[in-house]
């Protein structure tokens, strides 16, 4: 006789059915692919004309090659990582600030919000690449940044720089400032999603907390550090993780791995590069995550 299932078991089965499509995809595309990537990284891959491939195990040769012999990989990896680590605090802080501004009530808020989320449409993929290519065709990569700023503002940036130099500011400091100013566009462009997440977080803070702090006579400054900041701190972690991953996916390391695979057809080396960069980023995520969890305040 068939044993009847309890309600709990029934619900468990239904629940599993709900996530089944995802589970199949995860097993088929993620787990299998991850294992294969590691396998590729440890072997020399010969691609047959029919599209198949043969793998010969070579141990750590690909890793050695990537670190010791490849012309650019080391440099690009280190540069990308430094870029990521420098930009993340700026982006997160900036987006928190903007979220607070956009969350307060003022005339024309809808319009400003729409403008702020435009970079989601502009900032990614083909449009950006096309524009960069178009600028590069004229200027060559390095000069592209200053021209990007200059015609928009209608100001001669070089002229201002020369004035600052004549005043006697150290060149190093000036370089840093120029880098920061040139980077503002990057930061603004990279922080739209983070602003959205922070606005959602700010909306979920209960108004009674603000009422209490107002009645108790807290200044806005104190209210920010004692109420707003702790309440949105769980989302800071989310945003930091999102920013790191987003920056990493768009970094040059990925480009190098991609071109190694599809221009030079060196699958093994490309996989090794992917594995190295991914492991490093995961380590960074773990360390940063650990640090941030310590200052995070959980309401419940």
């Amino acid at each position: 006789m068939k044993k009847r299932l309890t309600l709990r078991q029934k619900r468990a089965i239904t629940g599993f059915l709900f996530i089944l499509p995802w589970f199949i995809g995860f097993a088929l595309y993620y787990v299998k692919s991850l294992i294969q990537t590691v396998q590729f990284a440890l072997s020399k891959i010969d691609i047959a004309a029919s599209g198949g491939y043969t793998a010969t195990f070579t141990g750590l040769d690909n890793f050695k090659y990537a670190f010791l012999e490849h012309a650019q990989f080391n440099q690009v990896l280190v540069n990308s990582l430094i870029d990521i680590l420098l930009d993340v605090p700026f982006i997160v802080f900036f987006s928190l600030l903007m979220a607070i501004l956009l969350n307060s009530k003022f005339k024309g808020r809808g319009l400003v919000r729409t403008i702020f989320f435009l970079p989601i449409l502009l900032g990614s993929g083909a449009v950006l690449e096309t524009l960069e290519l178009a600028t590069q065709n004229i200027q060559g990569g390095a000069a592209a940044m200053s021209t990007e700023m200059a015609p928009v503002a209608g100001v001669n940036v070089d002229y201002f720089l020369s004035i600052l130099l004549e005043v006697g500011l150290p060149v190093r400091l000036l370089d840093f400032i120029v880098g920061l100013v040139g980077g503002i566009y990057e930061i603004v462009r990279a922080s739209s999603v983070q602003i959205i997440i922070f606005i959602a977080a700010l909306q979920s803070v209960s108004p009674s907390l603000y009422e209490v702090s107002k009645i108790e006579g807290a200044t806005p400054y104190e209210t920010f550090w004692k109420v707003t900041f702790p309440m949105v701190s769980p989302l800071i972690l989310t945003n930091v993780v999102y920013t790191i991953v987003d920056k990493f996916v768009n970094s040059q390391v990925v480009d190098i791995a991609y071109s190694t695979a599809f221009t030079n057809y060196n699958y093994g080396l490309s996989s090794a590069m992917s594995v190295i960069s991914t492991v490093i980023v995961c380590l960074i995520l773990l360390i940063v995550g650990g640090l941030i969890t310590k200052i995070t305040f959980y309401y419940n």
Binding site: R11, A12, F16, F23, Y30, Y258, A261, S277
Partner: peptide, 28 residues
């Protein structure tokens, strides 16, 4: 719903968010 290994499976979802897609591009 509650089903066995739910927490572990959800951790896997988080992994798919964090893991850059280019890591698995060749096998795909």
């Amino acid at each position: 719903f509650d089903f066995p290994f739910k927490k572990l499976l959800f951790a896997c979802v988080i992994i798919t968010i964090v893991l850059p897609t280019h890591t698995i591009m060749l096998p795909l």
